[in-house]
Amino acid sequence: MQPAFRYVHLDTPVHRLHPLVKLIYVFLTLVLVMYPIRPTDLPVLLIWLGLSALLWIVGRIELRRFATLLKILFGTFVFLIIIQGFTYRFGQTPLLVLGHLRLWEADLGVITKEGVWFGVVLSVRILTAASALPIFVMTTPTSAIMTALGKLGVPRVATFMFVSALSFTSLLFEMWGSIVEAQKLRAFDIDRMNIFRRAFKAYIPIITPLILLLFRKANDFQIAMETKGFGSPIPPTEIEVLQTRPADYLWLAFILAVFAACTVLKFA
């Protein structure tokens, strides 16, 4: 089992893009989704999501990765739409009436059209935020991430923590898969349990060995890193030479333009 969002070595315009431009795109995504939300935000979010889709396609990232992202977030989306449907305080148009239970301004027994819509907007906002980081991680080699973060003045230890966390994720997925298999061999079938049983019971036989193994692996990682000079006070050599090309400026201008358009549209 491999993590869904690990770096894929390809030669595409997005892979060649300067990591700082990609970092600016991630940062602007976060700014955009942090703007105060309104039900009318959907076009703005869809425009930015369109930009993400463009990067996704130009970067030749497999579509099934996006499907994985949707699968991970699907439960959250359903939850948000239902909860907002019942509790959105500006909801006026009933879609489904189960009864009446007024709490402040909301009627908790009624699913409203406005609430469902607000839930949809919230979901799209989450999807917009969640789709940016995979593009960065899947198209940027770790050494380039380290160099780029170094240029931004981020301490090397902090950068490496981020980078090694990415590496550890891969190991984590493999271990998770192996543990689930090992417990199935003793008739413990987590895949067939409902969400409530999983939440309250099932994860102990999975998470306990995972934590114990992670402690051990972390120790081995520490040995491997420190015996390769990690943590030395010597200024490290930058292996990845990051060069800025005209295409980087064009992409940056394009991203900034889209961001400006979204901001204007949002607050107009």
């Binding site: 770790t142 990415l166 590496s167 081995d220 390769k228 000079g229 990690f230 490290p236 050599t237 930058e238």
Partner: peptide, 23 residues
């Protein structure tokens, strides 16, 4: 547990780069 970089090239450079060996 001894391999943590995304490419072999970066993996090989990791140790000497930490020690400031010229590129």
């Amino acid at each position: 547990v001894q391999l943590f970089m995304p490419t072999l090239k970066a993996e090989l450079a990791f140790g000497p780069a930490n020690l400031g060996v010229p590129r």
